[in-house]
Design a binder for these strands. Structure first.
Length: 491
RNA sequence: GGGCCGCUAGCUCAGCAGGUAGAGCAACGCCCUUUUAAGGCGUGGGUCGUUGGUUCGAAUCCAACGCGGCUCACCA
């Protein structure tokens, strides 16, 4: 199991010798009074002389990330969660415990206490009077200069990535800030955060293949949720007017730079509002997050600068299609739509319903062109079995998808709350499923029953958190914003 | 699932007209009490992703497989 190489062997030997000397290489605790960043901040204005005269005693703990030894002295850099600070270990000051230095390696955790000074190059440094080994590291660290580049190791052993590549930590700090900002925003708007089940007897709320699992005691098949939608809407029935949930969804589909089988979504629902309200709400939310996390509404992403300044363009889906040259007949007629799509080299099955065909054309011709934030609105009803129809056109629903940089960031609609129509829409989905569409929705009688008790008019939205983090951290792959992306097991 | 690319020391990478492996960092030993990619001298370290094939001989050529990346397909 354990990979033994020369360097691991060396460290195991040191470990053994330490134990023989009665030194515990895995200490119970240590209580550093200071952190690297605080020291740099607090003593920024102290020059060499004032540090000499004031004798400021501090203690720090962290991982040794660089070690430069001389005969009777050594410099090292210590990294803690706030940053790094140089330490100076010299025999005069340390006495007997200086011998511990011989057993020290890059990667070990140590704690030191001593006084602050500045070196010749004016670097703030702690001169150690006490040195405690807190944790011995058995494996050599990645190389100090080139760091860790192998993406496979970076994802599989993310801890190494985090130790060695500071920009990775920064991405996840921003991810945290983004989520916190969203939470604060929602709270300020009067929303309550809820948790709904991850395990669903009937997978619902989206068109996607689920992961299947099984509860032994109940002898019950369950599905990891593909969306929380139907549960959140049950809460509207229950009388909540503003709810949101930030949590994982699981979809048993392909993996790509934009898809991870488990991904984070915020879904929220608000009673008495429609999708128009949510468009401006989304503009407000995204600009608040961008200002907080990026400090600007102009966000660099890949070759573009995304401008998140509201308002964003509203683009009716059918209008987008005609702008791309899709003729009227193709937008109205099922067979004509298929013919036109195929004439453009877009593969469409022969029995494809018109909504689906138009969606395929849209994905091919329009989506990649939507670089700046664009609300694509008013989708064909077949695509949206949970959305409310437009009152002026029953073939369309009150729905929008927000695209940025060719990626779908959010999806929202005025919620269908007519139980009879909902049952009928489910029924059509069930028929599509029978015809082989294994991503069509399933009938959810319990949800329909909830609607029968009365759900107020409402609007709901899902925002893909991972994709939003990608946008705001200029990350090319979703794996760069997920700490532990799914990979095949290593053998 | 298809296509292309990658896999060599702990890490970053050379080596690929076929002649059984190299550098830097890291490690080990010695010297060195203000270094910061510290320096100097010396030493050790590899079933070259796996398995087969071609060949007198394979890290190098061929095939299959594994893992990863990009991409297309599928998919929100």
């Amino acid at each position: 199991m354990e990979e033994i190489n020369e360097q691991v062997e060396q460290r195991l030997k040191k470990l053994k010798e330490l134990k023989e000397q009665g030194i515990d290489p895995y200490q119970q605790s240590f209580n550093p009074l200071n952190r690297a960043l605080n020291l740099h901040n607090a003593y920024a204005s102290y020059d060499k002389d004032s540090l000499e005269s004031e004798l400021i005693e501090v203690s720090v703990a962290g991982r040794v990330i660089a070690l430069r030894e001389f005969g009777k002295a050594a410099f090292a850099h210590l990294q803690d969660s706030t940053g790094k600070i140089q330490i100076y270990l010299k025999k005069d000051a340390l006495g007997d415990s200086y011998s511990l230095l011989k057993k020290l390696d890059v990667g070990d955790y140590i704690g030191i206490a001593g006084r602050l000074f500045r070196t010749k190059t004016n670097e703030l440094t702690v001169e150690a009077k006490q040195l405690t080994l807190l944790t011995k590291s058995i494996h050599p660290m990645p190389e100090k200069w080139h760091g860790l580049k192998d993406v496979e190791i970076r994802y599989r052993q993310r801890y190494l990535d985090l130790i060695v590549n500071p920009e990775v930590k920064d991405i996840f700090a921003r991810r945290s800030a983004i989520i916190k900002t969203i939470r604060d925003f929602m709270e300020q708007e009067g929303f309550i955060e809820v948790e709904t089940p991850m395990m669903h007897p009937i997978p619902g709320g989206a068109a996607a293949r689920p992961f299947k699992t099984h509860h032994n005691a109940l002898d019950l098949d369950l599905y990891l949720r593909i969306a929380p939608e139907l549960y959140l809407k049950r809460l509207l029935v229950g009388g909540y007017e503003k709810v949101f949930e930030i949590n994982k969804n699981f979809r048993n589909e392909g993996i790509s730079t934009r898809h991870n089988p488990e991904f984070t979504m915020m879904e929220f629902y608000i009673a008495y509002k429609d999708y128009n309200y949510l468009m401006s709400f989304t503009e407000d939310l995204l600009s608040a997050v961008a200002m907080k996390v990026v400090g600007s509404l102009k966000v660099p992403f890949e070759e573009d600068v995304i401008d998140l300044t509201p308002p964003y363009r509203r683009l009716p889906m059918l209008q987008a299609l005609s702008e791309k040259g899709v003729p009227e007949e193709a937008i109205r007629d099922e067979q004509e739509a298929i013919r036109w799509a195929r004439s453009k080299g877009i593969e469409v099955p022969s029995n494809s319903p018109i909504g689906k065909t138009l969606d395929d054309i849209f994905k091919e011709l329009v989506e990649p062109t939507l670089i700046q934030p664009t609300f694509v609105i008013d989708h064909p009803v077949e695509l949206s079995p949970l959305a409310k129809k437009r009152s002026d056109n029953p073939k369309l629903v009150e729905r929008f998808e927000l695209f940025i940089s060719g990626r779908e960031i959010a999806n929202a609609f005025s919620e269908l709350n007519d139980p009879l129509e909902q049952r009928e829409r489910f029924q059509r989905q069930v028929e599509a499923r029978a015809k082989g569409d294994d991503e069509a929705h399933e009938m959810d009688e319990d949800f329909v029953r909830a609607l029968e008790y009365g759900m107020p008019p409402a609007a709901g939205e899902g925002i893909g958190i991972d994709r939003l983090v990608m946008l705001l951290t200029n990350s090319r792959s979703i794996r760069d914003v997920i700490l532990f992306p799914l990979l095949r097991p290593d053998k």
